[in-house]
């Protein structure tokens, strides 16, 4: 009998590796059928597991493939269950390495280990500050805006701070122009800056104001959801703004937040667990 078994993993590769380990065979000997490629999701949300269906190649030999071996005592039940489910303490999930790495090679989760460590951005070295200021002021001049630029460091990030008459135009409509300016200047200068060097562009402390505003809004809506007034959504936000909302609500276990929609700007839905969609097992892990 050629057994067809389904395996899950964080991505297709992980699922296949999972299958190979459980069946104790090599990838070449398996007939693999990808049922779902899975999705890594965003900020640990909307994550779906990849599913593959495998059977041993050479169907006749398949019968000799030790069926019981698949359920060796040290392989606990179904492979997905082998995944630890750290229900809610998600934030430090990634920070702590998967516990029994050395303990047994079997339980080491390859997909988890393969993920490269997050490359933290670093501040821009001081010798590049003048260069950035010049580039930014060139752009602003071309936009016919008069501005003063100062450089400082906020929360470990280099900040180009714009002050002057043009600020109002830049922060109009939730800072669309400011975000555009930041995005373009990063692109324009990235080749000349050291790798991972990162800066933000701010105008009259708009970033901090926006952060406070979004946090307050998130918490206010969360209270309403908790009081049973139904789900709440925040109008489309950029990725960094969504991150602020998700982080603000992360600690609160009575409600959850999720980004909905497609494209760069997505709405954020705040809901009570169970009221919107069943809790899916794919939410076990979070990126941050």
């Amino acid at each position: 009998m050629s057994s067809k078994l389904e395996f899950k993993g964080t991505d297709v590769d992980g699922a296949i590796t999972n299958a190979c380990e459980t069946l104790r065979t090599s990838r070449e000997k398996l007939q693999i059928e990808v049922l779902s490629t899975g999705s890594s999701g965003i900020f640990g949300l909307l994550r779906r597991q990849a599913v593959v269906r495998v059977s041993l190649k050479g169907s006749e030999e398949a019968s000799s493939a030790p069926e019981p071996a698949q359920k060796t005592p040290d392989t606990p039940a179904a492979p997905p269950a082998a995944e630890p489910s750290p229900a809610k303490q998600d934030s430090d999930d990634l920070a702590a390495p998967p516990a029994p790495v050395a303990a047994s090679a079997k339980t080491a989760r390859p997909s988890k280990l393969q993920r490269p460590p997050r490359r933290e951005p670093t501040p821009v070295p001081p010798e590049y500050h003048d260069f950035l200021c010049t580039e930014l002021s060139t752009l602003l001049t071309l936009m016919q805006m008069e501005a003063e630029i100062t450089v400082d460091e906020v929360n470990g990030k280099t900040r180009l701070h714009i002050t002057g008459a043009c600020v109002e135009q830049l922060i109009y409509r939730d800072g669309q122009a400011l975000d555009g300016l930041q995005y373009l200047l990063r692109k324009m200068t990235s080749k000349k800056l050291p790798e991972r060097a990162m800066f933000i562009i701010d105008a009259d402390d708009f970033r901090q104001r926006r952060l406070d505003e979004l946090q307050a809004k998130a918490l206010r809506l969360a209270t309403e959801v908790r009081e049973g007034k139904g789900n709440r959504t925040i109008p489309p936000l950029s990725p960094s703004e969504r991150r602020i909302v998700h982080i603000a609500l992360q600690e609160d276990t009575s409600i959850r937040s999720r980004s909905i929609g497609s494209g760069l700007f997505k709405k954020v839905l705040i809901y009570k667990p169970g009221s919107s969609r069943r809790r899916s097992s794919s939410r076990k892990k979070r990126k941050r």
Binding site: M143, Q144, Q169, Y172, Q176, A177, G180, L184, K187, L264
Partner: peptide, 16 residues
């Protein structure tokens, strides 16, 4: 990606 650069340029034009 997803027209992001083009959108950024347009937002600058609008602000300017």
């Amino acid at each position: 990606k997803q027209g992001r650069t083009a959108r950024a340029m347009r937002s600058l034009l609008r602000a300017a």
